[in-house]
């Protein structure tokens, strides 16, 4: 699905990713954990195409395409989805209208017919139920006046609508209470198939109780320094990141 090889990136003069490699196959869930400042969100931003970062070395292969050569929108159209850590409020732009535009532009890119109004509304009803998002919220301005939990559920609702091949959830658990966490995780689990993959970026282990990863990676100082199964997350929870730092120092 995606193969990241020796990725180096900087913002301004500051090097943030220092040779990150990672491969995710279809059907897999990978968790990327790590202390603040390790480069977790930078990785998500670079994969989505944010222009603030400069990639200085390395490659990213996404289903045979050179991901870094694609525009942000073409990455989305190829099936990459980023659930934002801080979803943006866009006053006046309705969630539904923008999603219909998005879906139709993605379809056009894939040389498919636009979605009919009827099918689209049926989809909205079905997918908003998946994350228990009030359909009234679904038709309001994008994230405007939404609570923290509603914003995150809206991210997963959009993910459900767009049905990406690879979803990157950037700190989706931040700011969520336990109920919202369960709803969000439940939505993600229901969307899981053998054809798609998920990268869960998180600081804490608790989300991984609900979204069970196949692999857990520790990102530290711009690199993946340790990879293990889901038990690694528990170990990190118990021992903290200092343990990793100490291990690396030796």
């Amino acid at each position: 699905m995606i193969k990241i090889n020796d990725l180096h990136a900087k913002i301004g003069e500051k090097e943030i990713l220092k040779g990150l490699s990672l491969e995710v196959k279809a059907g897999e869930i990978h968790a990327i954990m790590g202390p603040n400042g390790a480069g977790k969100s930078t990785l998500a931003s670079i994969l989505a195409g944010r222009e603030d970062y400069e990639v200085t070395a390395g490659q990213v292969d996404f289903q045979g395409e050179d991901l870094l050569e694609l525009s942000t929108e073409d990455r989305a159209r190829e099936g990459l989805f980023l659930a934002f850590q801080y979803p943006v409020e866009i006053p006046g732009v309705s969630n539904i209208n923008f999603l219909r535009t998005a879906i139709n532009e993605i379809r056009e890119y894939n040389k498919e017919e636009p979605v009919s109004a009827k099918d689209f509304m049926a989809m909205v009803r079905e997918k908003s139920a998946l994350v228990e998002l009030d359909s009234k919220l679904a038709s309001r301005s994008v994230n405007e006046g939404f609570s923290g939990g509603e914003k995150k559920r809206n991210e997963i609702f959009q993910m459900a609508m767009l049905a990406p091949k690879l979803a990157i959830l950037d700190e989706t658990d931040s700011g969520l209470d336990i109920d919202a966490l369960r709803i969000v995780a439940n939505g993600v689990n229901k969307l899981r198939t053998s054809e798609n993959a998920t990268i869960v970026i998180t600081h804490y282990q608790r989300l991984l109780d609900h979204i069970v990863p196949d692999f857990v990676h520790v990102l530290y100082d711009g690199k993946i320094v340790k990879t293990g199964g889901k038990e690694l997350a528990l170990e990190l929870e118990e021992k903290g990141y200092d343990w990793i730092k100490a291990e690396l120092a030796n």
């Binding site: 989505a48 195409g49 944010r50 525009s71 942000t72 929108e73 990455r75 989305a76 159209r77 989805f81 980023l82 934002f84 979803p87 943006v88 409020e89 866009i90 732009v93 923008f98 999603l99 535009t101 998005a102 879906i103 532009e105 993605i106 890119y109 994008v142 959009q158 767009l162």
Partner: peptide, 10 residues
């Protein structure tokens, strides 16, 4: 906001 919308395929 523009980046957010582009991330959704617009």
């Amino acid at each position: 906001a523009i980046f957010y919308l582009q991330c959704r395929g617009l």
